[in-house]
Protein backbone atom coordinates (compact mmCIF):
# COMPACT_ATOMS: atom_id res chain seq x y z
CA UNK A 1 0.00 0.00 0.00
CA UNK A 2 1.36 3.40 -0.89
CA UNK A 3 1.52 5.76 2.06
CA UNK A 4 2.79 8.64 -0.02
CA UNK A 5 2.04 9.28 -3.66
CA UNK A 6 3.69 12.11 -5.51
CA UNK A 7 2.13 12.77 -8.91
CA UNK A 8 3.52 15.14 -11.48
CA UNK A 9 4.69 17.70 -8.92
CA UNK A 10 6.00 21.00 -10.21
CA UNK A 11 7.81 23.57 -8.12
CA UNK A 12 8.95 26.99 -9.24
CA UNK A 13 10.97 29.50 -7.24
CA UNK A 14 10.72 32.84 -8.98
CA UNK A 15 11.91 32.07 -12.47
CA UNK A 16 13.77 28.91 -11.45
CA UNK A 17 12.08 25.57 -12.07
CA UNK A 18 13.03 23.14 -9.30
CA UNK A 19 10.75 20.19 -10.02
CA UNK A 20 9.25 19.56 -13.40
CA UNK A 21 6.86 16.67 -13.02
CA UNK A 22 8.02 14.36 -10.23
CA UNK A 23 6.32 10.99 -9.79
CA UNK A 24 7.04 8.59 -6.99
CA UNK A 25 5.33 6.44 -4.42
CA UNK A 26 6.43 5.26 -1.01
CA UNK A 27 5.07 2.00 0.36
CA UNK A 28 4.19 1.17 3.94
CA UNK A 29 7.06 -0.15 6.00
CA UNK A 30 9.70 1.09 3.61
CA UNK A 31 12.81 3.08 4.28
CA UNK A 32 12.82 5.37 1.30
CA UNK A 33 15.63 7.68 0.27
CA UNK A 34 15.50 10.91 -1.68
CA UNK A 35 18.89 11.34 -3.32
CA UNK A 36 20.42 13.71 -5.81
CA UNK A 37 23.02 16.41 -6.28
CA UNK A 38 22.94 19.51 -4.07
CA UNK A 39 20.30 22.00 -5.08
CA UNK A 40 18.19 19.42 -6.91
CA UNK A 41 15.28 19.98 -4.55
CA UNK A 42 15.35 16.92 -2.27
CA UNK A 43 14.74 18.91 0.87
CA UNK A 44 12.18 21.01 -1.00
CA UNK A 45 10.25 17.85 -1.88
CA UNK A 46 10.45 16.70 1.73
CA UNK A 47 9.15 20.08 2.87
CA UNK A 48 6.32 19.83 0.38
CA UNK A 49 5.33 16.45 1.81
CA UNK A 50 5.08 17.84 5.33
CA UNK A 51 3.14 20.92 4.21
CA UNK A 52 5.88 23.45 4.88
CA UNK A 53 6.25 24.43 1.26
CA UNK A 54 3.71 25.01 -1.47
CA UNK A 55 4.07 23.38 -4.84
CA UNK A 56 2.74 24.73 -8.08
CA UNK A 57 1.31 21.76 -9.91
CA UNK A 58 0.49 18.09 -9.54
CA UNK A 59 -0.57 16.40 -6.34
CA UNK A 60 0.91 14.81 -3.22
CA UNK A 61 -1.07 12.29 -1.22
CA UNK A 62 0.14 11.47 2.29
CA UNK A 63 -1.61 8.79 4.40
CA UNK A 64 -4.58 8.99 2.05
CA UNK A 65 -4.99 12.75 2.18
CA UNK A 66 -4.36 15.00 -0.79
CA UNK A 67 -2.36 17.80 0.77
CA UNK A 68 -2.98 20.39 -1.94
CA UNK A 69 -6.65 20.47 -0.96
CA UNK A 70 -6.54 19.40 2.68
CA UNK A 71 -8.79 20.94 5.32
CA UNK A 72 -7.23 22.49 8.40
CA UNK A 73 -8.71 19.78 10.64
CA UNK A 74 -7.32 16.95 8.50
CA UNK A 75 -3.98 18.70 8.30
CA UNK A 76 -3.79 18.95 12.07
CA UNK A 77 -4.63 15.25 12.43
CA UNK A 78 -2.03 14.37 9.83
CA UNK A 79 0.61 16.37 11.69
CA UNK A 80 0.09 14.20 14.77
CA UNK A 81 0.67 11.06 12.77
CA UNK A 82 4.10 11.88 11.46
CA UNK A 83 7.40 12.92 12.97
CA UNK A 84 9.92 15.21 11.33
CA UNK A 85 13.62 15.44 12.11
CA UNK A 86 15.21 18.59 10.76
CA UNK A 87 18.79 18.79 9.63
CA UNK A 88 19.99 20.66 12.70
CA UNK A 89 17.46 19.27 15.15
CA UNK A 90 15.38 22.47 15.36
CA UNK A 91 14.87 22.01 19.09
CA UNK A 92 13.03 24.77 20.92
CA UNK A 93 15.78 26.75 22.58
CA UNK A 94 13.69 27.86 25.53
CA UNK A 95 12.98 24.26 26.61
CA UNK A 96 15.28 21.55 27.95
CA UNK A 97 15.78 18.31 26.03
CA UNK A 98 13.26 16.51 28.25
CA UNK A 99 10.72 19.32 27.85
CA UNK A 100 11.23 19.32 24.10
CA UNK A 101 10.39 15.63 23.92
CA UNK A 102 7.50 15.94 26.37
CA UNK A 103 5.92 18.89 24.56
CA UNK A 104 3.81 17.00 21.97
CA UNK A 105 2.79 14.48 24.63
CA UNK A 106 1.64 17.23 26.96
CA UNK A 107 -0.19 19.11 24.24
CA UNK A 108 -1.92 16.26 22.48
CA UNK A 109 -2.52 13.48 25.02
CA UNK A 110 -4.11 13.22 28.43
CA UNK A 111 -1.53 10.85 29.86
CA UNK A 112 -0.47 11.24 33.49
CA UNK A 113 2.65 13.24 34.29
CA UNK A 114 4.40 10.14 35.53
CA UNK A 115 3.61 8.24 32.36
CA UNK A 116 4.86 11.12 30.20
CA UNK A 117 8.11 11.17 32.14
CA UNK A 118 8.52 7.43 31.63
CA UNK A 119 7.89 7.81 27.90
CA UNK A 120 10.39 10.68 27.74
CA UNK A 121 12.99 8.58 29.54
CA UNK A 122 12.36 5.69 27.17
CA UNK A 123 12.80 7.91 24.10
CA UNK A 124 15.97 9.40 25.54
CA UNK A 125 17.44 5.92 26.03
CA UNK A 126 16.09 4.76 22.67
CA UNK A 127 18.03 7.35 20.70
CA UNK A 128 21.15 6.83 22.78
CA UNK A 129 21.19 9.88 25.02
CA UNK A 130 21.83 9.84 28.76
CA UNK A 131 19.42 10.87 31.51
CA UNK A 132 21.99 13.41 32.64
CA UNK A 133 21.54 15.24 29.31
CA UNK A 134 17.81 15.60 29.83
CA UNK A 135 17.85 18.84 31.77
CA UNK A 136 20.29 20.59 29.42
CA UNK A 137 19.19 23.29 27.01
CA UNK A 138 19.80 22.94 23.26
CA UNK A 139 22.50 25.60 23.38
CA UNK A 140 24.45 23.47 25.86
CA UNK A 141 24.76 20.30 23.77
CA UNK A 142 26.68 19.27 20.67
CA UNK A 143 25.29 19.03 17.14
CA UNK A 144 25.11 15.24 17.26
CA UNK A 145 23.21 15.29 20.53
CA UNK A 146 20.82 17.87 19.08
CA UNK A 147 20.12 15.47 16.27
CA UNK A 148 19.43 12.60 18.63
CA UNK A 149 17.19 14.79 20.76
CA UNK A 150 15.41 15.93 17.61
CA UNK A 151 14.80 12.29 16.68
CA UNK A 152 13.50 11.57 20.16
CA UNK A 153 11.07 14.48 19.79
CA UNK A 154 10.03 13.27 16.33
CA UNK A 155 9.35 9.83 17.82
CA UNK A 156 7.52 11.17 20.87
CA UNK A 157 4.05 10.56 19.48
CA UNK A 158 4.92 7.12 18.07
CA UNK A 159 4.29 8.23 14.50
CA UNK A 160 3.68 5.80 11.67
CA UNK A 161 5.63 7.97 9.30
CA UNK A 162 8.98 9.57 9.91
CA UNK A 163 10.67 12.21 7.78
CA UNK A 164 14.40 12.64 8.24
CA UNK A 165 16.42 15.43 6.65
CA UNK A 166 20.04 14.30 6.44
CA UNK A 167 19.89 12.31 9.67
CA UNK A 168 23.53 11.24 9.72
CA UNK A 169 25.21 14.43 8.51
CA UNK A 170 27.33 15.96 11.24
CA UNK A 171 27.47 12.74 13.24
CA UNK A 172 30.67 10.84 13.88
CA UNK A 173 30.88 7.52 11.97
CA UNK A 174 30.13 5.44 15.06
CA UNK A 175 27.03 7.43 15.95
CA UNK A 176 26.01 7.45 12.30
CA UNK A 177 26.06 3.64 12.12
CA UNK A 178 24.21 3.45 15.43
CA UNK A 179 21.66 5.79 13.95
CA UNK A 180 21.27 3.51 10.94
CA UNK A 181 20.79 0.50 13.19
CA UNK A 182 18.27 2.41 15.26
CA UNK A 183 16.29 3.35 12.17
CA UNK A 184 16.23 -0.26 10.96
CA UNK A 185 15.22 -1.46 14.41
CA UNK A 186 12.40 1.07 14.62
CA UNK A 187 11.12 0.08 11.24
CA UNK A 188 11.19 -3.63 12.05
CA UNK A 189 9.60 -3.37 15.46
CA UNK A 190 7.17 -0.52 15.12
CA UNK A 191 6.44 -0.86 11.42
CA UNK A 192 7.50 2.70 10.74
CA UNK A 193 7.70 4.09 7.25
CA UNK A 194 10.73 6.32 6.92
CA UNK A 195 11.45 8.90 4.24
CA UNK A 196 14.88 10.42 4.34
CA UNK A 197 17.15 12.77 2.47
CA UNK A 198 20.73 11.56 2.74
CA UNK A 199 24.20 11.96 1.28
CA UNK A 200 25.83 9.33 3.42
CA UNK A 201 26.65 6.40 1.09
CA UNK A 202 27.19 3.96 3.92
CA UNK A 203 23.88 4.84 5.44
CA UNK A 204 22.19 4.70 2.04
CA UNK A 205 23.40 1.15 1.42
CA UNK A 206 22.77 -0.02 4.97
CA UNK A 207 19.27 1.26 5.47
CA UNK A 208 17.40 2.18 2.31
CA UNK A 209 14.96 -0.23 0.70
CA UNK A 210 14.16 1.96 -2.25
CA UNK A 211 15.40 5.29 -3.52
CA UNK A 212 14.33 8.08 -5.80
CA UNK A 213 17.10 10.02 -7.47
CA UNK A 214 16.19 13.53 -8.48
CA UNK A 215 18.34 14.98 -11.23
CA UNK A 216 17.61 17.68 -13.76
CA UNK A 217 14.21 18.51 -12.25
CA UNK A 218 12.98 14.96 -12.86
CA UNK A 219 13.16 11.58 -11.19
CA UNK A 220 16.20 9.99 -12.82
CA UNK A 221 15.61 6.65 -11.11
CA UNK A 222 13.19 5.06 -8.72
CA UNK A 223 13.64 1.58 -7.31
CA UNK A 224 16.00 -0.62 -5.34
CA UNK A 225 19.69 0.09 -5.09
CA UNK A 226 20.69 -3.09 -6.95
CA UNK A 227 19.90 -1.74 -10.37
CA UNK A 228 20.75 1.88 -9.77
CA UNK A 229 24.08 1.81 -11.59
CA UNK A 230 22.45 0.68 -14.83
CA UNK A 231 20.96 4.15 -15.27
CA UNK A 232 22.80 6.58 -17.48
CA UNK A 233 23.09 9.71 -15.41
CA UNK A 234 26.23 11.62 -14.55
CA UNK A 235 25.22 12.02 -10.95
CA UNK A 236 24.37 8.35 -10.44
CA UNK A 237 27.50 7.15 -12.20
CA UNK A 238 29.82 9.30 -10.08
CA UNK A 239 27.93 8.91 -6.83
CA UNK A 240 27.59 5.14 -6.88
CA UNK A 241 30.72 4.28 -8.86
CA UNK A 242 32.98 3.35 -5.98
CA UNK A 243 30.41 1.10 -4.42
CA UNK A 244 29.49 -0.78 -7.59
Amino acid sequence: MALIEVKNVQTVFGSKVVHNGLNLHINEGEIYGLLGPSGCGKTTLLREMVMLQEFHGGSIEVLGKKIESISERDAQELRQRWGVLFQFGALFSSLTIAENIALPLKEYTKLSKDMIETIVKFKIKLVGLQYSDAHLYPSEISGGMKKKAGLARALAMDPKLLFLDEPTSGLDPISAREFDRLILQLRDMLGLTIVMVSHDLQSIYDTLDRVAIIDNKKIAYEGTLDEVTSVKSDFIQTFFKEHA
Partner: peptide, 23 residues
Amino acid sequence: GNFLKTIQLVENKVDFKTPIPHT
Protein backbone atom coordinates in the same frame (compact mmCIF):
# COMPACT_ATOMS: atom_id res chain seq x y z
CA GLY B 1 5.63 -11.98 18.01
CA ASN B 2 5.88 -8.33 17.00
CA PHE B 3 4.07 -7.19 20.13
CA LEU B 4 6.45 -9.22 22.24
CA LYS B 5 9.37 -7.67 20.38
CA THR B 6 8.07 -4.17 21.02
CA ILE B 7 7.59 -4.94 24.71
CA GLN B 8 11.06 -6.50 24.78
CA LEU B 9 12.53 -3.36 23.18
CA VAL B 10 10.80 -1.17 25.73
CA GLU B 11 11.85 -3.31 28.70
CA ASN B 12 15.45 -3.24 27.55
CA LYS B 13 15.52 0.53 27.53
CA VAL B 14 12.97 1.74 30.03
CA ASP B 15 13.84 2.54 33.59
CA PHE B 16 11.14 3.20 36.16
CA LYS B 17 13.44 3.90 39.08
CA THR B 18 15.85 6.70 38.22
CA PRO B 19 14.11 10.01 37.84
CA ILE B 20 15.36 12.54 35.30
CA PRO B 21 17.91 14.64 37.15
CA HIS B 22 16.81 18.24 37.40
CA THR B 23 18.98 21.28 37.62
